[in-house]
Nucleic acid binder design. Structure first.
Length: 360
DNA sequence: CGGGTAGGTAAGGGTAATGTATTACA
DNA sequence: GTGTAATACATTACCCTTACCTACCC
């Protein structure tokens, strides 16, 4: 495929066009990342991106005199197969680093008529169980019977219905914690990254007593920390707040929804999970009076002053003594994350240069 | 016909919002 | 000791990506 061009990486606009027009799956994307340095974005849509998408749709409608109903027909065509490639490409162009598939999925989710209906009622669970019993895991059909989005039915089923009789709630016993630690650490052996942990499997190995979500949260937010410190409890301190504020400051994002929390911890500071760190940020933010009406940079201005100095007495935050991966020490050649400048932002950028991996 | 692909569903993997129990501390 | 704010621990709705399937096109 046309490696012709020059020695320079393909132009950005060329990539933007590809992303907005070609329906590429994961493999295809990975291939382009490797072969011609394609850069694209993954992860949650930031507030800014959501706004851009909405404006693009609004614009699409007004320039063509389309009604709300027409728009709905485009997003969810009734039976006829009128593919509206123009629509999806145009909307995708509003968020340059996103592949068309991601935008397509996002918009269909966000505008689904049955979206967001809050807590599940017992009657709904009953309908769900009934539907799955008769139809099997055909979620689109099940959704019709239950009155919830297919994906929500699937989630409810796998997270709360399966093994429901065995499910245990409340605080974890020491035995359970030990069991989970054993399972997770065993699974990690021979794996390269902790992303190789399959929480559905873990839940099964716990004999269904705890759901995949319970297992995952318990491990990432609590047990992994204890494991790293050999049982010592590490509490969040001012020095941690200091580090966090300055890390976020260094990102230079326009809005905190653009922060990729997974990228915050590093080899020196990694006791707290991305989830925990994100929550700490929220707490700090909320402690500022009137934060609701402030922009991200205004909030940063205040926090920067508040945490201007590293508390001198503070012991440096403990660093994991157990390297993330078995006994091999991870060198961490200093990140060279392809932080493609500030223009990008939010979620994770996927680019050439594979960071990782070591392997053997 | 046969490979390629657009457009859809299912499965896999994860986070955000919120509630509740503990702990720190004035 | 007491009230309250911060933090730890739980719960679950909600979200995004990848795998897979199928009708359709050249």
């Amino acid at each position: 495929m046309a490696p012709s061009s020059s020695s320079e990486p393909a132009s950005h606009s060329g990539h933007a066009h590809l992303l907005a027009n070609k329906w590429m799956g994961a493999n295809k994307l990975a291939e382009l990342v490797a072969s011609e340095g394609l850069v694209y974005k993954k992860g949650k849509f930031s507030a800014i991106e959501i706004k851009q998408v909405n404006e693009a749709m609004q614009n699409y409608c007004t320039t063509r005199g389309l009604s709300e109903e027409d728009l709905n027909q485009i997003i969810f065509p009734s039976d006829e197969k009128k593919k509206d490639a123009v629509f999806w490409s145009e909307i995708t162009s509003a968020v340059p680093l996103r592949p068309i598939v991601a935008v397509y999925q996002y918009v269909r989710r966000a505008h689904h008529p049955m979206k967001q209906q809050g807590k599940w009622q017992p009657e709904e669970d009953a309908k769900l169980i009934q539907a799955v019993t008769s139809l099997g895991q055909q979620w689109e059909k099940v959704a019709q019977l239950v009155g919830r989005m297919a994906t929500d039915c699937r989630d409810r089923y796998r997270n709360h219905i399966v093994d429901r009789e065995k499910r245990v709630n409340g605080a974890w016993s020491t035995a359970e914690e030990e069991e989970l630690t054993r399972i997770v650490t065993t699974m990690q052996q021979g794996k390269n990254l902790d992303t190789d942990i399959f929480w559905g499997k873990v839940s099964e190995m716990m004999d269904g007593k705890r759901s995949r979500q319970q297992c995952r949260i318990k491990w990432t937010d609590s047990l992994s920390k204890k494991f790293k410190t050999d049982g010592a409890t590490a509490r969040w301190g001012t020095h941690d707040a200091f580090i966090l504020v300055h890390k976020i400051d260094a990102l230079g994002v326009r809005d905190d929804t653009e922060i990729d929390w997974k990228s915050i911890p590093d080899s020196q500071w990694n006791l707290f999970s991305a989830h925990t760190v994100q929550r700490r940020w929220l707490t700090m933010k909320k402690s500022i009076k009137g934060f609701e009406d402030m922009t991200h940079s205004e909030i940063m201005d205040i926090l920067r002053v508040k945490y201007a100095e590293m508390p001198s007495y503070a012991k440096v935050s403990k660093v994991a003594k157990v390297p993330a991966r078995s006994d091999e020490y991870i060198e961490d050649s200093d990140n060279d994350e392809p932080q493609a400048g500030s223009s990008t932002g939010p979620g994770t950028l996927v680019a050439e240069g594979g960071p990782d991996d070591d392997s053997e």
